[in-house]
Amino acid sequence: MRIKETVNSLIEEAIAEHASDMFFLVHGEQMVVNLRTIVGISQKAAFTLNEGKEIINFLKYGAQMDIAEHRRPQVGALTYDYDQEKYYLRLSSIGDFTGCESLVLRIIYQVQSGQYFLPEQIEKLTQLAKRRGLIVTSGPTGSGKTTTMYKLAQAVGQGKMVMTIEDPVEIHQASFLQTQVNDEAEISYARLLEAALRHRPDILIIGEIRNAQTARLAVDAALSGHLVLATVHAKSTLQTISRLESLQINQNELSNCLTAVSYQRLLPTANGFSCLLDIVSGQDLQDSIGQTQRGNFVKWPENLAELKQRGEISAPIYEQFQEG
C-alpha cells in the first residue's frame, strides 16, 4: 500500500463530500475510516491494523506530532493543497484502554465572501466590530466560525495589531501574530491570554472560550477597550448568552462588554455550501441579557424560510435546520 497516495485519496474524498471530520478508529481487527458530513457519520474505508497504523503515523508526522507516542493525547495541524484551494487540517490522537491509537482529522474550509447566503449579515458584523467589545460566534464543528472571525479581523484590522490564541492555529495569516496552546509546555489559553494583553493588541482572536478562566480574561480584555472575537459552544444564538453565564460571567458584565452574538451553520446548496448567520446586537441583545429565560434565535426561522422560497436550499434542508 502506498501510504501517501492512500492518505491523499482519503482526504480528497472527504473534501469532495464536504466532511467536517475523518475518524480513524480500531474496530476489531480493522482500522476503519469514517466521515462526518451534514447527514451524519458513514464508513468510507477499512484497512488492516498495520496499514491503519502506517496511515496514522504518516498523518502525525506531517502534523509534527510524536509518532512514538501512541497512548497520550496529542494535537497537531497541517495544510493541504487540493484543486487550487488550501485546506487546514486539525489532528487529535489518543490511545484507548487496549492501547490502540485512534485519530480524528478535522477539515477547515475557507468561506469566501460570496459564500454567505445573506452578505448583509457579514457586513453587519463588520460594522459592529468597529465598536470594539466582545463578539462571540457559536455553532457546531465545521460551521466556519474561525473563518468568520478572521474575515472580521481582516476587515477592521488594517494598520492594527491583531493577535490570535488558538488550539491549534487553523488558518495561517502572515499579518497576524498567531499563538498556539501547548499543554506539554504548560502554555495554556489562560497563560497566552495574560501574555497577549501585555503585547497590547488592538484585536484579539480567541479560538474557543472553554472554561470560566478563559471567559473571565476575554471579558476583561473587552472591557479594557480591545476588540475580542471568540467562539463558544452553544446550541443557538440567544443560548450563547446563557452559556457565558454558565462560565460565571454575570449579566452586568455581559451588558457592558458584549457587542454582538452570532450563530452560524454551513448549509448545502446545489453548488456547494454557504453560511447562514443569526445575529443579535444593540437593544435586542441588551433585552436578551436581562431575561432569565431565553428563546433560541432572532431571525433564523424567517431567514431559513426565505432561502427555501428563493430556491437556494431544498425542502429537506429547510426541515433539517429548523432548530439550527
Rank of each mutant, 00 (worst) to 15 (best):
E5I: 10
E12S: 13
E13G: 06
E17S: 08
S20D: 03
D21V: 06
F23R: 07
F24C: 05
G28C: 04
V33W: 01
N34E: 15
T37M: 01
T37L: 01
A45T: 02
A46S: 12
L49C: 06
L49D: 09
G52T: 07
E54V: 11
E54H: 15
I56Q: 11
N57C: 08
K60V: 03
K60M: 10
G62N: 13
D66H: 11
R72D: 10
Q74W: 05
L78K: 10
T79G: 12
Y80L: 02
Y82S: 03
Q84L: 11
E85S: 11
L91N: 03
S92C: 11
S93M: 04
F97G: 00
E101K: 10
E101G: 08
R106C: 01
I107Y: 01
Q112D: 12
S113W: 08
E120K: 13
T126W: 08
L128E: 09
K130A: 14
R131M: 06
L134K: 09
S138D: 06
P140G: 07
T141G: 07
G142T: 04
S143C: 08
K145L: 08
K145W: 09
T146R: 02
A155P: 07
V162F: 00
T164E: 13
D167R: 06
S175I: 14
L177E: 07
Q180G: 04
N182Y: 00
D183K: 11
D183L: 12
I187K: 12
I187F: 11
A190I: 14
A196F: 05
H199N: 13
D202V: 06
I203E: 06
R216S: 13
A218C: 10
D220C: 09
A222C: 05
V228P: 01
V228R: 03
L229T: 12
H233G: 09
S236H: 04
Q239K: 15
R243H: 09
R243F: 03
Q248S: 15
Q251F: 01
L254I: 12
A260R: 01
T269W: 07
A270M: 07
S281M: 10
G282D: 10
L285H: 05
I289G: 11
G290M: 03
Q293F: 02
G295M: 11
G295Q: 12
L304Y: 00
E306T: 09
L307C: 05
K308T: 02
K308E: 00
R310K: 14
E312A: 08
E312L: 15
E312K: 10
E319I: 02
F321K: 01
Q322L: 15
